[in-house]
């Protein structure tokens, strides 16, 4: 159930492939994400989900295949260039600036977005402080704005990452296991927030997740990756009923809520 009308999808991927020393991490993957859509990419550990993300955001060059943002090919561009085209991302293993406060972390993203990096005199803390707080408020991190990012609890780091990813007013948001390690209540909260932002700002969201409550709760559509290949695509009900997906990934659902 794709939303967003007839124009080019925000993200389209065709025949993507990447191998690490003979092991095909991603093989012939094709899909598209529309404006305002939340697409979940799930699959066993080592299926190639993070590798896909790293290709999409420019950390890794694909061996084959093409990536299109709003119809424009961005295959093999650097992560800087891709960010400039309106792609925000969060990392499975969180990456923030540990020697800066939470607010300063967001300020850095804003400074980059507004191209104020090459400024040598006025202190950085005067740049975009209010805008940074405005991004921290919806993710619930405003009261921790003065804390060092290096000493945040895991779940809070994930929220900080979301705020950073939103700083360039992205059209596409890539979230690699956004709620892993978060408390159950906050998972729901974070994903509800993402859902809201996605529809309000017409952001396309591609995310991976091992929490089936989250996946089936918020995804509009689900893709299943196994050993680098797409083995299934469809709605939550379709995926849950797919015997192959159950065999390689879902199991009986006794410990994951996937039943």
């Amino acid at each position: 159930m794709t939303r967003g009308g007839p124009e080019a999808p925000v993200l389209a991927v065709a025949g993507l492939a990447k191998a690490f020393g003979g092991v095909a991490a991603v093989a012939e993957v094709s899909f598209a994400v529309a404006r305002g859509e939340m697409l979940a990419l799930i699959g066993p550990n080592g299926a190639g989900k993070s590798t896909c993300f790293n290709i999409l955001s420019g950390q890794i060059r694909p061996d084959r295949g093409a990536v299109y943002l709003n119809g424009e090919s961005v295959t093999g561009l650097s992560s800087r260039a891709i960010w400039r085209r309106g792609v925000g991302r969060t990392f499975q293993i969180t990456a923030t600036f540990a020697s800066m406060t939470v607010r300063e972390n967001v300020q850095m993203a804003l400074i980059s977005h507004h191209r104020r990096v090459w400024r040598f005199l006025r202190p950085a803390r005067h740049y975009f402080a209010a805008e940074a707080d405005a991004l921290l408020a919806p993710v619930g991190m405003q009261d921790q704005a003065e804390r060092a990012a290096g000493e945040l609890a895991y779940g809070d780091l994930k929220r900080l990452e979301l705020a950073i990813a939103l700083a360039n007013a992205p059209r596409l948001l890539l979230m690699d296991e956004p709620t892993a390690g978060m408390a159950p209540a906050e998972r729901g909260g974070l994903m509800a927030l993402t859902r809201r932002l996605a529809s309000e700002r017409a952001i396309a969201v591609l995310f991976t997740e091992h929490d089936m409550d989250v996946v089936f709760g918020v995804a509009d559509r689900i893709l299943v990756l196994d050993r680098g290949r797409l083995i299934a695509a469809g709605s939550g009900a379709e995926i849950r009923a797919n015997p192959e997906v159950r065999a390689v990934y879902l199991g009986s659902g006794a410990t994951s809520g996937g039943h």
Partner: peptide, 15 residues
């Protein structure tokens, strides 16, 4: 947190 980041199937095996 032994189940963090693991697929549902593996979480089952872990249990």
């Amino acid at each position: 947190e032994p189940s963090e980041g693991l697929s549902p199937l593996i979480v089952e095996q872990m249990a």
